[in-house]
Design a protein around this nucleic acid. Structure first.
Lengths: 335, 335
DNA sequence: CTGAAAGCGCTTACAG
DNA sequence: CTGAAAGCGCTTACAG
């Protein structure tokens, strides 16, 4: 492992200069095709593997992106962020980049402990995947890498972000319920807990407004406390005919709660979720939900990041990616 | 971003040499503590960030490990490998390493497409996380990086591995059932599908042998085909009093199947699983299972990897990590 | 305790 | 079409 073949070795073997080898291996038009062929063949025979460490130093660029994410997004029932990571890193691969991935523990987040990759300039840019504490984000930003927030935004910092169009998606799914005859619709989610939930709520609210349906405050139900810990869902005395839930887990818990009170879903109450997570499929009935376009989000983030690095920190602002409604069994039409 | 402060800048500012700066920043005893202090202070003031690219080239070491894993382990109900990744990369961080993470798509695995990190020597070693196709593994090994297999082994290649002690864990959990009075015990899992399932079966079998309980072939039930695709579980006419399932998902499906046939779990039949995955908790009743010690597996893999790199490819062989039985509700004692 | 020299593997700008 | 020179940011071995 320790003694790898270098361009110099190939050059010496063929009696050419290493500049020529370098150019041939990157298929430069400078080199005659016959020589190119010979060099490529010899490189293969000698077991040459390109060593990016030289280029890294020369260009002061690692062609590597650091992805940073909080461990709280990788619990047993969170499929979402690992899938998003997969799409992001695959897109980066195609652009010639590698990806380092740090799942930050709660204690490291509290201690503002920064991954080695950023401490030692082993990445050219940073993607923060999912909301983290403001202090932690600030700490990361203090290293001055080109940065993109993925799946969240934060107006406190003027950082580009790629997010799913939460507002529009709940607007659409609420409209779907209204078209199916529902006029008494509740929302389940703590609208102060995260900006995603807030936006989803506002999309829900816009659909009501457009259809001149009153917002009943008793039908806005908390699913978690302000620190994002799930709490027991308390059903109102008078039930609406449908609930829009801020996420599938909450939809699942809402359905369980309704069932435990003797209600049937969707016969008595319709329920919709968000995320298309495992809960949507394991629930009985299976939950009609919104599938976020993770592939598109990953691709756009990768492209944005690479452009920022190569073209000197362009600004993009907020990029919204549309989701898609997935129809399952948890909604009943009233007309 | 582009013009970062370097050691040279600090040296010039203070009128010392960059060797002195380098030594001071790594707290070498060569430098007087007063000068050291001055250099560290100036570095901070100037916003110096250590640039590992220089060291990488010098030492031909990136202090980075590539983790490669198949996308099939990151489905909606797989929590396992991302957790293992987290522990592994956290352990590597503590040893001063960064981790690149590639989730290989099925098509890339078929095409033997290798991550950029390996193509360009951007890592010092490789961890393959979870079984992949032999061809793909062979391709990866052809790059001659120090390699560790994590959570699987393959006698075809003489590569070090860190695996959970599947054999011993099902041996233990089967013994637990026997101690609780069960003598009619089945196994659910295709024992030809993976080496893990095979080892788990053999641990089960050993417990039977030790207790002079006959192995009833009708009670060895397939949960998947030989390509690892889950199939409908077919219950035998005469049921045993307990099933040892090769994983929680299978335990979950077995319980669902039993319930649909009118049996009660654990009153009529006890069921145990393996992995302590989401299925174990979402199932009703919750499943008694084996929790694998992912933290220990990550830590041992990290240590092994770093030692191989620094001490020149030591060999370790097969390292077995013990799991732990988690008692829940799906087992009833018969005495 | 401090520093000048050499070099890691590559690429770019330039000369021929 | 080919190559000599310079340099990216660091560290090690050595001289003083």
């Amino acid at each position: 492992m320790n003694k790898r073949v270098t361009m110099k070795d190939i050059a010496e073997k063929l009696g050419v200069s290493k500049v020529t080898v370098s150019k041939a291996l990157k298929d430069s038009p400078d080199i005659s095709s016959s020589l190119k062929e010979k060099i490529i063949k010899t490189a293969q025979e000698m077991g040459y593997i390109y060593n990016a460490k030289g280029r890294m130093l020369r260009e002061n660029l690692t062609y590597s992106i650091g992805v940073i994410s909080s461990e709280k997004y990788y619990g047993k029932d969170d499929y979402f962020y690992i899938d998003l990571y997969k799409h992001l890193s695959n897109s980066l691969e195609k652009l010639g980049f590698t990806t380092t991935f740090n799942i930050i523990s709660q204690s490291d987040e509290n201690d503002l402990s920064v991954p080695n990759a950023l401490l030692e300039q082993k990445v050219d840019g940073v993607v923060i995947l999912g909301q983290m504490s403001l202090d932690y984000i600030q700490k990361i930003l203090s290293y001055n890498y080109p940065t993109v927030f993925l799946d969240f935004y934060c107006d406190k910092f003027n950082v580009d972000c790629v997010i799913t169009d939460n507002f529009y998606a709940t607007y659409e799914i609420t409209n779907m319920l209204i078209e199916q005859g529902h006029t008494q619709i509740g929302f389940v989610g703590n609208i102060y807990a995260t900006s995603s939930i807030q936006d989803r709520f506002l999309g829900f609210y816009k659909a009501l407004l457009e259809n001149k349906i009153d917002l009943n405050k008793d039908w806005i139900i908390k699913d978690r406390d302000d620190n994002n810990n799930f709490i027991d869902i308390i059903l109102p005395k008078n039930l609406p005919t449908a609930f829009v839930c801020n996420c599938d887990k909450t939809a699942y818990l809402t359905i369980e709660k309704l069932k435990s009170r003797g209600y049937k879903v969707p016969d008595d109450v319709s329920v919709v979720g968000f995320d298309d997570s495992l809960h949507a499929v394991l629930s009985q009935p299976k939950i009609t939900t919104v599938r976020v376009n993770l592939e598109e989000m990953g691709r756009r983030t990768a492209k944005m990041m690479v452009e920022k690095i190569k073209q000197g920190e362009k600004h993009y602002g907020k990029m919204l990616i549309k989701g898609k409604i997935i129809i399952r069994e948890s909604v009943k039409a009233l007309k």
